[in-house]
C-alpha cells in the first residue's frame, strides 16, 4: 500500500529514489505527457464553459486522479516510491531542505530565473522544459517574489472550517464553498498563492514542469481528505443536473471512466503518514 509522506521527513535514500524516478519519466517522455494534459485542461477550463480540472467542483477529484496516475508512473520505475507532500504551512522559506541541492534545488538566479543547482538545473542536462509557452527551455523559479508569504496554518484552518463543499455558480466566483477557497479564487487563497510564491513555470499553465507541482498538489489533496474527516455529513456537490460542471456521478475527461464519487475515498489508493 502506498503511503504518502511529508517531504521534510524523507530519508536521503527516499529522496534519491523519488528524484531518479522523475528523471526516468522525463527521459522516456512520459513526464512531458502529463504536462501537456494539465495545460490542455487549464487552457480550456473556463468560468462559463465546460470545466473539469480547475475553477470547478471537480478540481479536487480531477487532481486526485491525475496524481494517482502520475504516482503509478513513478512506481512503474521504482515500486518503493510514493508522492511526498509539501506542507507549505510548515516549510515556508526558500531555505527549507525541500529546496536543497540534494532534492529539488533552489530558487532561480535573478537575471533569467534559471534554477542553478540540484538535479533539475538546466546545466545537468536532464531536465529540459519541452512543453513550454515561451522560448525558455530551462526550469525557472522565483521563490517568494510573486507573493511574499505562503499560506499559514491559521489560514488553512479557516478554510478547513467551511462546511459546504462548493456552491453555485460552481466556478471561480463561488463565494461560500470549501473548494473555491482551497483552490484560491476567493478568500485567503491557498492553492493559487503557492503557485505564485514558487514562480517560474509554477505560475504558468505548464506548472507541472516543476516537480514541486506534485508535492504541492499532494498536500492540497491531503487537505481535502482532512476536510472530509472534519465534515463527514458534507457531501461532494453538485449531486446532479448541473450544466458545464462534473456532478457526483458524471465521468471526468480525459479518462471518461472515473467520477468524483470514485475519488472520494483516497484510502482505496494510498494513505498518509499522519492525519
Amino acid at each position: 500500500m502506498t503511503v504518502r509522506k511529508n517531504q521534510a521527513t524523507l530519508t536521503s535514500d527516499e529522496k534519491k529514489r523519488f528524484v531518479n524516478a522523475l528523471l526516468t519519466l522525463k527521459r522516456n517522455g512520459k513526464y512531458d505527457a502529463f504536462v501537456t494534459t494539465h495545460n490542455a485542461f487549464i487552457m480550456s477550463d473556463g468560468d462559463d464553459t465546460d470545466r473539469v480540472g480547475h475553477r470547478s467542483p471537480s478540481f479536487l477529484p480531477w487532481h486526485r486522479r491525475f496524481l494517482i496516475e502520475f504516482e503509478q508512473a513513478l512506481q512503474s520505475v521504482d515500486s518503493t516510491v510514493a508522492l511526498p507532500y509539501w506542507d507549505w504551512t510548515a516549510d515556508r522559506t526558500a531555505t527549507s531542505s525541500l529546496w536543497a541541492a540534494d532534492f529539488l534545488g533552489g530558487t532561480g538566479r535573478s537575471r533569467d530565473g534559471q534554477v542553478m543547482d540540484g538535479p533539475f538545473a538546466s546545466s545537468g542536462g536532464q531536465w529540459a522544459i519541452n512543453v513550454r509557452v515561451d522560448g525558455r527551455n530551462y526550469l525557472r523559479r522565483a521563490l517568494g517574489a510573486g507573493v511574499p508569504q505562503l499560506p499559514t496554518k491559521a489560514e488553512v484552518d479557516s478554510v478547513l472550517a467551511m462546511t459546504t463543499y462548493d456552491e453555485a455558480p460552481w466556478n471561480s466566483q463561488s463565494t461560500g464553498g470549501f473548494r473555491n477557497h482551497l483552490e484560491g479564487w476567493r478568500g485567503v487563497n491557498l492553492h493559487n498563492r503557492v503557485h505564485v510564491w514558487v514562480g517560474g513555470q509554477m505560475g504558468t499553465g505548464v506548472s507541472p514542469n516543476d516537480p514541486v507541482f506534485w508535492m504541492h498538489h499532494a498536500f492540497v489533496d491531503k487537505l481535502w481528505a482532512q476536510w472530509q474527516e472534519r465534515h463527514p455529513a458534507s457531501p461532494y456537490l453538485p449531486a446532479a443536473g448541473t450544466a458545464n460542471v462534473v456532478d457526483l456521478r458524471e465521468t471526468m475527461r480525459p479518462w471518461n471512466n472515473v467520477t468524483p464519487a470514485d475519488m472520494l475515498d483516497h484510502k482505496k489508493f494510498y494513505t498518509f503518514d499522519a492525519a
Binding site: 468560468d47 509557452v133 466566483q173 479564487w185 503557485h195 504558468t204
Partner: peptide, 13 residues
C-alpha cells in the same frame, strides 16, 4: 474570469 478579471497562460494563478 466570470467576475471580469483576467488571467493568461503566463500568469495563470
Amino acid at each position: 474570469n466570470g467576475d471580469g478579471t483576467w488571467i493568461s497562460v503566463i500568469n495563470h494563478y
